Amino acid sequence: MRRRHLIALAAAALATGTAFAQGAYPTKPIRLIVPFAAGGTTDIIARVVAEPLGRALGHSVVVDNKGGAGGAIGAAEAARAAPDGYTLSVATVSTTAANPAINPKIAYDPVADFVPVINIAATPNVIAVHPSFAAKDYKSFAELLKKQPGKFSYASSGTGGIGHLQTELWKSLTGIFLTHIAYRGAGPALNDVVAGQVPIIFDNVPSSLPFIKSGKLVPIVVAAPQRLADLPNVPTFKEVGLEPVNRMAYYGILAPKGTPKDIVDKLNAATKKVLEDPAVKKRIEDTGSFIIANTPEQFAQQIKDELAVYKQVVAKQKLTLQ
């Protein structure tokens, strides 16, 4: 009896110690992988949230940019990380839906290899052109491209990224042909469009907006539920008869599969608290984004829904990585 009693006490102590260790999370800095180069919307949103999230958790959250392959390189690294809450990643439509839809050999499963933590924000996208481009509004833009198929090209954050597949969705509905030029992230793609090396880009509003406001890019049409306060004269895709293209990007946090639920819940609660801060909320909304701050389960469903949409685009457009 005494031996069984001692074993029971030891088991209880071990369980209590384990609970205490998990409850103490985090005890060291957290790495947040951003699967794109610095300067794009993913990087902007991550950096707005990282510092206050670190303060809320009691240890710094360090942004680590790992760009390339439309976000697949950084996402694959995040999927391989230990499920201990110390390596997280920023999830985008590119990494969880568009890229997996086009790449059957991608090194991770966007649904099975991650545990969704929270969707931070949703961001409208915009087709914009270099100021030298002849068309400055949607009607003349579409007419010009239809008259000269194959003459013009567009830049994207990479093959399989949202900029690529959302443009292909638009092309599939309009019959317009453009040549795709892929970059290692939205930042480099924007730089070349602003420099006039490529005339067109389909990008997130937050990263494009400063160039639009400074006159270095001209907005043509936005993918958003309604016109944006910062771009009141720019129509939505619904207004030009292409409502299926009105899909916003999302920016959320993922943990590797196997991450304990208590850690996921703590990260979700801490991020929600950060997003309630008026200063953080304003910084995100000033980029043209909308705060989402949903549950892990809701974010998981969003990922599944977007993956289904872009699998259809890939099949219809017969897209490959080549």
Rank of each mutant, 00 (worst) to 15 (best):
Arg3Pro: 07
His5Asn: 15
Ala12Cys: 12
Ala19Pro: 09
Pro26Glu: 02
Arg31Ala: 00
Pro35Asn: 09
Phe36His: 10
Asp43Tyr: 06
Ile45Gly: 00
Ile45Arg: 08
Val48Tyr: 06
Val49Leu: 12
Glu51Asn: 12
Leu53Gln: 09
Ala56Leu: 09
Gly58Glu: 04
Val62Thr: 13
Asp64Ala: 14
Ala72Phe: 04
Ile73Val: 14
Ala75Trp: 07
Ala75Leu: 09
Thr96Phe: 11
Pro100Met: 02
Ala101Phe: 00
Ala101Ser: 15
Ala122Pro: 04
Val129Glu: 11
Ser140Lys: 11
Ser140Glu: 10
Lys146Gln: 03
Ala155Cys: 02
Ser156Met: 06
Gly161Trp: 08
Leu165Pro: 00
Lys171Cys: 06
Ser172Leu: 00
Ile176Asn: 04
Ala182Ser: 06
Gly185Val: 05
Gly187Ile: 06
Ala189Trp: 05
Leu190Glu: 00
Val193Tyr: 06
Ala195Gly: 00
Gly196Asp: 07
Gly196Cys: 13
Gln197Val: 11
Gln197Ala: 13
Asp203Met: 02
Pro206Asp: 08
Ser207Thr: 01
Ser207Ile: 00
Pro219Ala: 06
Ile220Leu: 07
Val221Ile: 14
Ala224Phe: 07
Ala224His: 07
Ala229Leu: 09
Leu231Phe: 11
Phe237Glu: 02
Lys238Val: 10
Gly241Leu: 07
Glu243Pro: 06
Pro244Gly: 05
Val245Thr: 11
Arg247Cys: 12
Gly258Arg: 03
Thr259Leu: 00
Lys261Cys: 14
Val264Trp: 03
Asp265Gln: 07
Lys266Tyr: 03
Asp277Asn: 09
Val280Cys: 01
Ile284Gln: 05
Ile284Phe: 13
Thr287Glu: 08
Ile292Pro: 14
Asn294Ile: 11
Gln298Trp: 13
Gln298Val: 12
Lys304Asn: 10
Leu307Ile: 08
Tyr310Asp: 03
Val313Ser: 12
Leu319Phe: 15
Leu321Pro: 07
Gln322Trp: 15
